[in-house]
Design a binder for these strands. Structure first.
Lengths: 137, 137
DNA sequence: GCTAAATATCATATTATCATGATAAATACA
DNA sequence: TGTATTTATCATGATAATATGATATTTAGC
């Protein structure tokens, strides 16, 4: 469903929501806890920082923290910059134009399902997932 | 949502459902009508044949046709062999084990959405999409 | 049998995703 | 001011998805 990259981003954000309470967390800690390649995660966290999801502090005793409280961060903000979510709902048959007025063959039926998914990512916050269950692998 | 490959498979199957009534259709016709790379489509149609979705006839005046009536062919049969659908519903956070009893952080909320999607592919037939709207690009 | 036309298969190229490794820049602290 | 630690960035490699091109195999019809 999500690309590896988007999945890593989500898991890292959830880790920060759960274990980061106010402190700065280093890439190394997250990478080890979640078993994600360290340098790869580094770039993902950097991207999330540019997106305004995280804040980073450089230098000794630096690290990453959430830019807002977990109940103010929506999943789409975290995974959107990677996978193909967030932008537009895209047509199941890959048409550039696919609307209620100019629908593809699958439009009416697929719309229901795709909208549900879009709403999930758009309206679910990190806070709602924290505590749902264990996060680490 | 779907990989290019799975999307091509679905569009080709819909084309056969709509324009293939009983006759044998050649790869070239489908490739041209749907603007899909010909040799690439050829392999996809061959895969669908192995899956039992299509029947192929070799040699002169050969081609492809649906193996069953459109109302007996479900989307999961068409796109399952490609993308990651059909097999198992997979965990949003990528855990190998993610069940109601050993859930990941997102399980409860994601399950609803993922189940909807699975049902869409499992219970929708080609016949239900034909005539929904224009198929070709 | 020969030829043309079609699927089946193999080999390779291209592109995007995923990942690793090395270096630069910034910062706390002694 | 120097050093250790950390993020930021650059360069490169590995793998999978996508696509192209060439050849083999099968079959209808002459």
């Amino acid at each position: 469903m999500l690309s590896h990259t988007a999945e890593y981003a989500l898991r890292a954000a959830l880790y920060l929501a759960e274990h980061g309470r106010g402190r700065l967390v280093q890439v190394g800690e997250i990478a080890e806890a979640l078993d994600i390649p360290r340098n790869y995660l580094s770039k993902i966290l950097h991207a999330l920082t540019r997106q305004g999801v995280l804040r980073s502090t450089r230098g000794k005793s630096g690290g990453f923290q959430l830019a807002r409280r977990p109940d103010g961060l929506y999943l789409v903000q975290v995974v959107g910059p990677f996978g193909s979510l967030g932008e537009k709902r895209h047509c199941l048959l890959g048409r550039a134009q696919c609307t209620d007025r100019a629908p593809c063959a699958a439009h009416a039926r697929w719309k229901e399902v795709a909208d549900r998914m879009a709403i999930f990512f758009r309206e679910t916050t990190l806070a709602e997932l924290v505590g749902g269950a264990v996060i680490a692998a």
